[in-house]
Simulated assay, not measured.
Amino acid sequence: MRARALVGWNLRRLRVAKALSQEALGLVAGLEPSYIGRIERGRENTTIETLEGLAAALEAELSAFFVIPEPGAAKPGSLRPGRKPKG
């Protein structure tokens, strides 16, 4: 797996685990949601500084973006579409 794809895979995995939309993560990390989407799709060659900010926003270690998935691992899922139910 190429480095950009690996970072994108792990960013999505971490974001979904925290139940954050790309928009919500963007607000916390100070990034545009479309930029986060491009990183997740492996289309952006992001900087270490940006990864540090994303790691802080996700309360994760920087090294979490470089975890190699197990062979045959399913692609990280997505959040349920739509708004959260009012509680």
Rank of each mutant, 00 (worst) to 15 (best):
R83F: 14
G72Q: 07
R43A: 10
K18S: 10
K75R: 14
A56N: 04
F65E: 02
E49Y: 14
A17D: 12
P85T: 07
A19S: 14
E61P: 01
S34T: 15
R43V: 04
E40D: 07
R43T: 01
I39F: 01
L14N: 00
E70K: 12
P76G: 10
P69S: 03
L31R: 10
G82V: 07
G77H: 10
A57W: 01
E49N: 08
G87E: 12
I68C: 05
L11F: 07
L14F: 06
L51F: 08
A3G: 01
A5E: 15
A64I: 05
L31K: 13
L58H: 01
A74L: 12
I36R: 00
M1S: 11
L51E: 06
P85C: 06
F66L: 09
S34W: 04
R41T: 09
P33Y: 03
E40H: 05
L11D: 01
K75W: 11
L31M: 15
G82L: 07
S63D: 12
A56W: 11
N45W: 09
L14C: 03
A29R: 02
L27M: 08
A73T: 09
G53S: 11
S34L: 08
L6E: 05
P76T: 08
L25P: 00
T46S: 14
L6Y: 07
E32N: 15
A57I: 03
A55R: 03
A73N: 07
A56K: 13
R80C: 11
E70N: 10
T46M: 09
L51K: 05
G72I: 07
R15C: 00
L20P: 04
E61M: 04
K18L: 05
L79I: 06
E40V: 08
N45S: 14
